[in-house]
Amino acid sequence: MTKIIETKDVRLFYGKKEALHGISLDFNKNELTALIGPSGCGKSTFLRCLNRMNDLVPGVSIQGDFKLHDKDIYSSKMKSDDLRKQVGMVFQQPNPFPFSVYDNVAYGLKLKGIKDKKEIDQIVEDSLKKAAVWDEVKDNLHKNALSFSGGQQQRICIARVLAVKPDVILLDEPTSALDPISSNQVENTLLKLKKEFTIIMVTHNMHQAARISDKTAFMLDGDLIEYNKTKKMFLSPDQQMTSDYLNGKFG
């Protein structure tokens, strides 16, 4: 297994308050890793360090090593927009641009400088297919993305990220705003996508983590409690605290 992202001793401060207390996590290529833990444990905060979305939050300072393909994510040579083209992100609330489905997916491409209409058409179709939403939108590519259901919007957002061809996709509770059927469709999409991409997903849904992830990291109050293969984690966790959380003793 090749490691694609390595982090070491990550500490994050909101002002003077330390929110992450030295977290070290490595992520393997073409695996789906789930970050679980109760609300406020820092899992989303950690996720947002990986594509430097925390840079936008005033008063945040970050320490520790972050490497993507052995290159320092936080070095001055790494431009945040280049980084984010390699590390895409899908959010909790579906947030398509208020444009047509086609323009949503094609947006990143135009900015990458791809002008050839045929090439863009092809990538849009491929991305929507990979995000498993093509069949539902193919007849309405020029309809406003916001007129689709939440689940469809979320998969359009995934397609939008895929079109830029990132190496890693971060998902921040991608199904928590969706109904069970839509959630299921998004989960199936992710299972297919991990053959091509590395996926890191924050979820508050333990069953979801158990169903689709290869590895699971359990976080609590800004600490990493346990990081293991998902099967091992759910059947016989090393830590008592993990077991208690997974069995619903707190949460």
């Binding site: 594509n51 979305m53 936008l56 945040s80 927009d81 280049d82 980084l83 984010r84 083209k85 895409g88 992100m89 959010f91 609330q93 947030n95 398509p96 641009f97 208020p98 444009f99 947006y107 990143g108 900015l111 957002c157 939008r160 990220v161 830029v164």
Partner: peptide, 27 residues
């Protein structure tokens, strides 16, 4: 314009100005 749109633009690797010009202003 919802802050989610800004995040969406930035997370796609658009620069701040590209996000403003291409996403925020049209909306």
């Amino acid at each position: 314009v919802s802050p989610l749109q800004r995040q969406a633009g930035l997370s796609l690797g658009l620069s701040r100005w590209e996000t403003i010009k291409g996403v925020i202003i049209p909306e």
